[in-house]
């Protein structure tokens, strides 16, 4: 059953998703996972927020992956997000110079996460955004959403996704400015203020 013959397209069917469970802690997080911005870069932004369940309780065991373009709207093609040390077998971390565009952050015991990345540039018809993939114990299939940054109202108004979203829920996709270069983005998995999640076809 699980040897798939690509010459028979009817056997090439998707492998089902499963929850990440509670015990990924030694496997997936890595030091500097949220330090996506190269050191001292003028376009660095801080993103942070909480992940909440349907009763408004913060999740202490969720993690997010962030993936975005560089300030020119170019997609990074450089590896090295989780550089390893061949001597110790441990993690070296990022080199602080290259921008890989991708990071992975856990929520802490309070359900809070934070990351530093570069302010994304626009691509295609979209306003600038950072793509987010949410994983958690209890979540049988991960969830995609987007973090749009506030400021350029014309770009947000023209964005093909934001134009289609129910106006009452649109703000769940747009971060709140806390101070210069720092934004808050909470994720509500269920219920009042439920975040808009995306499905790609």
């Amino acid at each position: 059953m699980t040897k798939i013959d690509p010459s028979r397209p009817e056997t090439v069917l998707p492998t089902p998703s499963h929850t990440v469970g509670p015990f990924y802690g030694h496997a997936l997080p890595f030091p500097g996972g949220g330090d996506i911005a190269p050191l001292g870069h003028p376009d660095a932004v801080t993103l942070r927020g909480y992940v909440y369940d349907g009763e408004g309780a913060p999740l202490p065991d969720a993690f997010l992956e962030l993936w975005g373009a560089d300030p020119d709207g170019e997609l990074p093609r450089v590896d090295g997000s989780m550089r390893r040390d061949p001597a110790s077998g441990g993690f070296l971390g990022r080199n602080g110079v290259e921008f890989t565009g991708w990071g992975r952050v856990q929520t802490d015991a309070d359900g809070h996460w934070s990351a530093r990345t570069l302010r994304p540039g626009a691509r295609g018809a979209s306003a600038p955004y950072v793509s987010v993939c949410v994983f958690a114990r209890g979540l049988l299939v991960h969830l995609f959403t987007r973090i749009y940054l506030p400021g350029d109202d014309a770009a947000l108004a023209a964005d093909p996704l934001l134009r289609r979203v129910d106006p009452a829920r649109r703000d769940t996709l747009i971060a709140t400015r806390e101070r210069s270069g720092a934004y808050r983005f909470d994720i509500r998995l269920q219920g009042e203020g439920e975040t808009v999640f995306l499905e790609f076809q």
């Binding site: 993936w67 955004y129 979540l139 049988l140 093909p160 996704l161 439920e194 808009v196 995306l198 076809q201």
Partner: peptide, 23 residues
């Protein structure tokens, strides 16, 4: 899963409409 799943349907994005999508 009971308190950790969305109750609203996801918003569908047709990837054929824009080759520049970050995703």
């Amino acid at each position: 899963s009971v308190l950790r799943h969305p109750t609203r349907p996801p918003v569908t994005i047709d990837v054929g409409t824009d080759p520049e999508l970050v995703e």
